[in-house]
Amino acid sequence: RAISWMDRRSRDQADRISALLGFPLDPSFYLPKVLWLRENSPGDFERTVRFFSCPEWAAFRLCGEACTYLADPYYERYTWGGNAASALGLDASLFPPYTAPGRILGGLLPAASRETGLPAGTPVVTAFPDFLASLLGSGAVEPGIACDRAGTSEAFNLCAPAPCADWSFLSLPHAVPGLWNISGGLSTSGKALEWYARAAGFPENDKSGARKVFGAAEESVPGARNLLFLPFLAGERAPLWRRDLRGAFLGLSMDHGPEDLARAVAESIGFGLRLTSQGLAERGQAARLVRVSGRPARNTFLSRLKADILALPVEVPEVPDCELTGNAAACAVALGDGSSLAESAARLVRVESRFEPDPGMRNEYDRLFGIFSDAVESLIPLSERLTSGSGAGGGSHQGR
């Protein structure tokens, strides 16, 4: 059984665990889901021997060794909840032991060899949660470089010498010891593109929903004729921490066509990321460069749009699936081919293209971002009223 990170049913459990931990823990984290399963599906819970996140489950299937990746002891509070798990009566055997990245976990099992076509005994190396791997794999290993991890969701991850004093932004230890990753983002960036493609009734073909939206958006103009979209379709995490926040179009008129709505949805990704980039800059931790990661990084329109809205240069690595390069850096260290994670990443990462912000767009996107930011604040209480009603829903995003 698998439960997606986007599953929001464990909100009550997250509140109780947050009270135990003394800081907010979002329902997207692991322990609230474990507690929800125990309380709402006791049969499934009793049959469960271990809980894994996806990367460690894959490693377990490959080599038969159970572990939880732990890049720094600080992360224990966000994985299995530290002391909260025992306080809740959860047996420690349910949670695999921690291990550091860049270690040989075991050798490929014969059954896994047959499934993958790789030789039995091939080393299986411990690595990272996806966001830490992408930091390495994008080369965001110097203060001031940010990695924009794009996909179903999206996060602006800034490499910094110290955590942010404002804990609305998520400050976590970097993959490189001594550095910090400060982040905030969008829970439904790619999901918003897919949603709009489906809602707009774009024809079924071999193009992804995102590509259809971008194609339509290019037929509009910057600013989408004064139309904004707020892309909060499943609540929001850092820096807003509003699980009841919902999306909206703002400024819609009879003059707008499907291409304008598509443009507004596409631009909302840039504005959502700017909530973090500008917020950090105002707190003395500004980015000077953004490296994009993930499948959307291959889209020239989107990379140029982000550069214009963020008013920052955007670079695309040769291998935009930066998690792969970051994990390759961990393998290099484990196998003795790299002296450190930072050195291995610097050797492996190469930039393919760079997009400079268009100075002619600065005033317009500054103006629109100001409205976007004000609209978010206005939408928060309205969303809370909507989601507290008897017809409130949100979907479970559960997988099996």
Rank of each mutant, 00 (worst) to 15 (best):
A58D: 10
I269R: 07
E323Q: 13
L25I: 15
T387L: 14
A197S: 10
E46N: 14
S183K: 00
I380V: 15
S383F: 10
A85I: 09
M6A: 10
S168A: 14
L158C: 05
Y69D: 07
L228H: 01
A329I: 12
L382Y: 13
Y69H: 12
F128Q: 06
N299R: 04
H174M: 02
L118E: 12
K306P: 00
S18K: 02
P119H: 06
E194D: 13
G137K: 04
A224H: 01
G223Y: 03
P203Q: 12
L275T: 00
G399E: 13
L302E: 03
I104K: 13
G272T: 00
S339R: 11
A85F: 06
A84S: 09
P239K: 05
P381R: 00
K212V: 11
R288A: 14
L341R: 07
G336R: 05
T79Y: 13
F232H: 06
R9T: 11
A224L: 02
T325V: 15
P163N: 09
L170E: 05
S344W: 06
L158S: 07
S303Q: 11
E39N: 07
S171V: 03
V213D: 08
E343T: 13
L302H: 03
G81F: 07
A58V: 15
P231S: 00
G326H: 07
V213R: 01
G370E: 05
R61Q: 02
I182K: 10
N327A: 15
L108E: 06
A84F: 07
E323T: 13
S268A: 11
F131T: 13
E267Q: 01
F249I: 11
G370W: 04
N40F: 01
E204D: 12
G235C: 07
P313W: 04
P296T: 07
F355I: 07
A297E: 07
N181K: 01
Y196W: 15
R237N: 05
E154D: 08
L94E: 02
E384H: 05
A329H: 10
S86E: 15
P239M: 00
G326V: 05
S303A: 15
S171Y: 09
G395F: 04
P123Q: 07
P320C: 11
L135V: 06
Y78S: 13
R149K: 12
A334Q: 11
V221R: 11
G336H: 12
G370H: 03
A332K: 08
P143S: 02
H397P: 03
G215M: 10
G272V: 02
K212Q: 14
R298M: 13
L172G: 01
S153D: 04
L94D: 00
G121M: 01
A2D: 14
R288P: 13
F369Y: 15
A133N: 08
G338Q: 04
E323N: 09
A375R: 03
F372T: 02
S41F: 09
G64A: 06
V290F: 03
A346Y: 05
V351T: 15
S189N: 01
P258A: 08
V316H: 05
G395W: 00
A2H: 12
E356H: 04
L289C: 10
T122G: 06
S383M: 12
